[in-house]
Nucleic acid binder design. Structure first.
Length: 677
RNA sequence: GCCGAGGUAGCUCAGCUGGUUAGAGCGCAUGAUUCAUAAUCAUGAGGUCGGCGGUUCAAGCCCGCCUCUCGGUACCA
């Protein structure tokens, strides 16, 4: 750390098509905020940069669906997100957005520099074009029948029914969602960033130069680099985003992944004229706080961009976290399985620090973690209330009772006093060390140990007994207790800023100064402290139950939705139907296709012949259990080679709401080759 | 299948380059205590460190095989 004079911390830009939830907070913003607050308290030069990511196709889709403009969508969510962060005390130096003019300028300029340096490859490819709307169609703008499960309404990039990721060109009967017309293939030109060109550098820089990165980050990078990097398109045919700033690029914008990380730079520019010092001076340390889904962008792609540009620093570390689950299930925006920050702020008004604490103590630092309301309650009641809040309250109430709220003059310290005061420094040191290594879970636990120390000190010295016999001794005890309390008011500031602030007010001690941390005469004898009020409140079972009920309702709504059958497809004529030759057949042999997860190779007696069919059912059936089974098979489907095997036909399956596959078979045994009609 | 990250006490997690009886917090039990939001403090119970095999004087840590979870990737006619 000594080689750096200042630090620039960026936080992943939340996508402005919805509000933010506890997963965002736990993985990125709370750890970044803790880190930055700590550095600031130490008087270091540090900036915390954030902003909303406001481009990309999902936002345009959402706008279309709601009949408003993309700008309306991002305005709405940017405001909600920004407000949530502010209220949770995420101390951004700036929280900006990528629809700003500064960002357009910065991103264009960045693109132009790379363009002029010849850092891009130009490639032409064929893509769907909507002739009515006169625009190219992003994958998401195309719907059609899924080539896998044959459900209608699959998107060009993914079928939501079977979950398969698709190429738009694979869709059967593609349709533009913009005009409803049938799109045509048309040539289009795009620019690509040749990541492969940067591979040797990345290999050296990360795999040799940054072995200290977290194992999840390092391993992920190694995996990507070893798999071989491909050129990545940096532009798209779309009208929402930063226009590609070269001639002949009408209707093209920067692809969102290229545009978004430049948002970090734009935001810094917007904040200060001195921005280059933070981005280009090698004595500045660049840190990206992100979730694990962003590792490849921040460790491979963005550094390649910065390297290609030539004048920027590359990140010194990328402390990425894993994911937070909620009550055992993946957090999901679309399924409304989340604790939304704007809702928490209303339902737990004034209790931001409780959530900050729980998310820090249980942060997904090394693996995915689970957030449960029961744990939330327990940590509040047993740790914040019982250990921290209680100790502070005890020392202050006793001081008030015995000394009218005035810090007493200590008599001589005995060994136990000295030992207690002496161990403060160690706690501070261990907290600092954990913080500097991005081990926030450990850091907050260590900070809480200071309150534990206080409770033990009081229990062992028992001033409430001594007050009757040895007043001088009590003065010393209260003095020591108050010094611990004062230390807590500084030490907990990065984690629990609202509480620490309240505590410092109670102690009349002004702003936090980290250099006092570990000192044992922060509050001088005679100093007047204010009246004690409780730092934390107990959370009752009923409050927790309310939250659990809310989640249960969400789950129920999801289930109801899953039960609704998809609407019927477009009518077909009888002739069209009879083109499909479906027969009954019997499975003679079955074996797993090597090196695949889902595929079984089946030999079917169709009554006409014996043929081989590859079927994606291995996740639901063991080969031996289906031999002899009668099935329905589409026998005149054009053959296709899958994993080196010619598959001649398709077994018909019914898919249950949970994705489980079930054979569609005759209810009684019939002759093989019987027609299904 | 391949790549990556994990699998350590009921729960959440530490365990440095392999080295004495494997640790912490919460929960649980018992005792102490009453200044404090029935909070606190002490003590204790509880683990074949995912499984099997190997290297070593010595393995949670190294090697091989297997298994489960999460992520990436291939595959689903």
């Amino acid at each position: 750390m000594t080689k750096f004079k200042r630090t620039l911390v960026t936080t992943a830009l939340p996508y402005a098509n919805g509000p933010v939830h506890i997963g965002h907070l736990a993985g990125v913003y709370v750890p970044a905020d803790i880190y930055v607050r700590y550095l600031r308290l130490k008087g270091e030069d540090v900036l915390l940069i954030g902003g909303s990511d406001e481009h990309g196709v999902p936002i345009t889709l959402k706008a279309r669906k709601e009949g408003i403009t993309p700008q309306d969508v991002v305005d709405k969510y940017h405001a909600i997100i920004k407000d949530s962060f502010e209220k949770f005390g995420i101390s951004f130096d700036i929280y900006s957005r990528t629809s700003n003019k500064v960002h357009y300028d910065t991103a264009s300029q960045f693109f132009r520099t790379l363009y002029e340096k010849g850092e891009f490859i130009e490639k032409e490819s064929e893509q769907y074009y909507d002739e009515e709307a006169k625009q190219f169609l992003a994958d998401r703008y195309i719907t059609g029948t899924c080539p896998h499960c044959h459900k209608e309404g699959a998107y060009g990039d993914q079928c939501e029914s079977c979950g398969t990721s698709l190429n738009a060109t694979d869709l059967i009967n593609p349709k533009s969602t913009i005009s409803g017309s049938v799109p045509r293939m048309r040539k289009t030109k795009h620019w690509y960033l040749p990541l492969d060109k940067h591979e040797p550098y990345l290999r050296q820089w990360i795999l040799e130069g940054h072995k200290e990165w977290k194992s999840n980050v390092y391993g992920q990078c190694k995996s990507w680099i070893d798999q071989g990097l491909q050129p990545r398109a940096v532009s798209r045919d779309l009208d929402w985003g930063v226009p590609v700033p070269v001639d002949g690029a009408d209707g093209k914008v920067l692809y969102v992944w290229f545009d978004a990380p430049i948002g970090y730079i734009s935001a810094t520019r917007e904040l200060t004229d001195d921005w280059e010092k933070y981005w280009k001076d090698p004595e500045t340390r660049l840190l990206h706080f992100i979730g694990k889904d962003n590792i490849v962008f921040h460790c491979i792609v963005f550094p390649s961009m910065l390297k290609a540009e030539g004048s920027y620093n590359l990140p010194d570390n990328v402390p990425a976290n894993e994911f937070l689950n909620l009550e055992g299930d993946k957090i999901s925006t679309s399924r409304n399985w989340a604790v939304w920050l704007h809702e928490y702020l209303e339902e737990f008004s004034g209790q931001q620090d409780v959530l900050r604490y729980v998310l820090t103590a249980n942060a997904p630092e090394t693996k995915d973690n689970d957030f449960t309301w029961k744990d939330f309650q327990a940590r509040n009641n047993n740790e914040l209330v019982a250990i921290f809040g209680n100790f502070v309250n005890r020392s202050m109430v006793l001081t008030d009772k015995y000394y009218g709220g005035k810090v007493p003059s200590p008599a001589e310290f005995n060994d136990f006093d000295r030992e207690t005061l002496g161990s403060i420094e160690g706690i501070v040191k261990r907290t600092e060390e954990a913080l500097e290594n991005f081990k926030f879970r450990e850091a907050v636990k260590e900070a809480m140990n200071l309150a534990r120390l206080g409770n033990k000190y009081l229990a062992d010295t028992e001033p409430w007994k001594l007050i009757k016999t040895d007043e001088a001794r009590v003065a010393t005890i209260m003095y020591v207790s108050l010094q611990i309390t004062a230390n807590l008011a500084i030490l907990t500031e990065p984690f629990l800023p609202f509480t620490a602030d309240k505590l410092r007010n109670m102690l009349n001690m002004g702003g936090a100064d980290w250099s006092l941390c570990g000192k044992t005469e922060i509050l001088k004898p005679g100093h007047i402290i204010a009246e004690a009020s409780l730092l934390f409140q107990k959370i009752e079972d009923t409050t927790i139950q309310l939250q659990l009920d809310k989640l249960a309702a969400s789950k129920k709504a999801n289930e109801a939705e899953a039960k609704t059958a998809a609407p019927a497809r477009e009518n077909v004529s009888y002739d069209e139907f009879t083109k499909m030759d479906i027969r009954t057949g019997t499975i003679l042999e079955a074996e797993k296709v090597a090196k695949t997860k889902k595929l079984l190779k089946l030999k079917i007696d169709t009554g006409i012949d014996q043929r081989t069919v590859v079927s994606g059912i291995a996740e639901y059936f063991q080969p031996e259990e289906i031999i002899g089974r009668q099935v329905s098979i589409l026998v005149n489907l054009a053959p296709r080679n899958i994993k080196g095997i010619d598959s001649q036909g398709m077994i018909l399956m019914a898919e249950d709401a949970d994705g489980r596959l079930v054979f569609v078979s005759p209810s009684e045994k019939v002759k093989n080759g019987s027609e299904v009609k």
